[in-house]
Simulated scan of single mutants.
Amino acid sequence: MRKAALLAAVMLAATFATTTTQAAAKKDPAAAAQQNTENFMKAATNPYEATSKPAAKAKKHVAMKKKKGKKKKA
């Protein structure tokens, strides 16, 4: 009798454990609305952020080498 009661208790606990995690996994619509509002306000205050590109890397300046040649006599 005790084994049957223990089995029923374990089965019942397992059932509630899986349903509570599924219920907790649902996204809150109020939180999604808050995120949308935050994104909207960021875009409104800085409209160029979405289309701006990062600056290109600076190129190293390489000095031109002087050509070695014959010197002209005056």
Rank of each mutant, 00 (worst) to 15 (best):
R2K: 09
K3Q: 01
A4L: 15
A4G: 04
A5L: 03
L6H: 02
L6F: 06
A8S: 09
A8M: 02
M11C: 10
M11H: 03
L12G: 06
A13V: 01
T15E: 08
F16T: 11
A17Q: 04
A17W: 07
T19W: 02
T21V: 15
Q22P: 00
Q22K: 13
A24Q: 11
A24N: 08
A25D: 01
A25V: 03
A25G: 06
K26N: 09
K26A: 02
P29F: 00
A31L: 09
A31M: 01
A32M: 11
A33L: 13
N36Y: 04
N36Q: 15
T37V: 09
N39D: 11
N39Q: 15
N39M: 14
M41A: 07
K42C: 01
A44R: 05
A44S: 05
N46D: 15
E49K: 12
A50Q: 15
A50L: 10
T51N: 14
P54Y: 03
A55W: 00
A55F: 00
A55S: 10
A56C: 05
K57F: 03
A58W: 05
H61R: 13
H61G: 01
M64R: 13
K65S: 12
K65Q: 12
K66Y: 00
K66T: 11
K67E: 14
K68L: 07
K68T: 03
K68A: 10
G69K: 02
K70H: 09
K72Q: 13
K72W: 02
K73T: 11
A74S: 10
